[in-house]
């Protein structure tokens, strides 16, 4: 039974049995993992508040192969992000992004950039209020890291560059009008302003994303693009930030 040490951020936790918790973490070395924390709901437990959502901690876990779930042995807080959990609006926006990462990250597929991206959002939210526009840009950045970067420069089918192209969720990029025969392919229009913001977001360092300030119209358009694209990836509708914050 190998013992593994890793840093991780708590994405979510569920009650398990009478006094246990099933905690979902995102680790830079293991990706999204689920671990059982025995006795975590008891008054005198060894984990303290380290299993609260958004906590950045250092874990010691047992890999109980062939079982899918890890067993949590020890958890120490590196940064609690308590300030994020002390504000209703911050809880809502960060929960929404956490659910987004959880939904789109396959288990056991590690990505250091995804881990750092979530950490950057938590550090930003600790001090400032993350607007719905900024959350959208973090989602766009996440898609890039997760292998879903939108191809915006050329038509994904014929590789040519036309001035008026539309976004196809099923192809994950822009398509020109000759490649959309009789409008058979579902596609959405993307304004040049949105294209520019998206390109900038994909290129930019995650720590600098907060400097991009999209207008309300641009943000509305990005929300729609994300909605249709995520629907295509997941095969179901992902709840909007408004729904999470209801």
């Amino acid at each position: 039974m190998p013992l593994i040490e890793t840093d991780a951020i708590v994405l979510n936790s569920l009650k398990l049995g009478e006094a246990d918790k099933l905690v979902t973490f995102y680790s830079p070395t293991l990706g999204k993992i689920k671990a059982v924390a025995r006795g975590a709901r008891k008054v005198k437990n060894k984990y303290g508040s380290s299993l609260e959502p958004f906590t950045h901690g250092h874990l010691v876990i047992y890999d109980k192969k062939p079982q899918v779930l890890y067993r949590l042995f020890q958890s120490d807080i590196i940064e609690s992000f308590q300030r994020v959990r002390s504000d209703y609006d911050k809880i809502m926006t960060t929960s929404h992004f956490s659910l987004f990462i959880e939904a789109l990250s396959p288990e056991g597929d590690p990505s250091v950039p995804v881990f750092n991206l979530f950490l950057k959002l938590l550090e930003y939210t600790k001090v400032f209020e993350a607007s719905p526009g900024l959350i959208n840009l973090f989602k766009v950045k996440f898609l890039g890291y997760a292998g879903y970067e939108l191809l915006l420069d050329r038509c994904v089918k014929c590789q040519s560059s036309f001035p008026s192209m539309r976004f196809s969720p099923s192809l994950g990029g822009m398509v020109c009008s000759p490649c959309i025969p009789d409008n058979a392919l579902y596609s959405v229009a993307i304004s040049p302003a949105v294209q520019s913001v998206l390109k900038q977001t994909f290129k930019m360092d995650p720590g600098l994303i907060s400097r991009i300030r999209p207008s309300e119209e641009v943000n509305k358009e990005i929300s729609h693009i994300l909605e249709v694209f995520i629907f295509h990836i997941l095969g179901k509708k992902f709840p909007s930030l408004e729904t999470t914050s209801k």
Binding site: H96, T244, K246
Partner: peptide
């Protein structure tokens, strides 16, 4: 918010 339980 993580389990989809709203005030209503």
């Amino acid at each position: 918010p993580l389990d989809g339980v709203s005030p209503e």
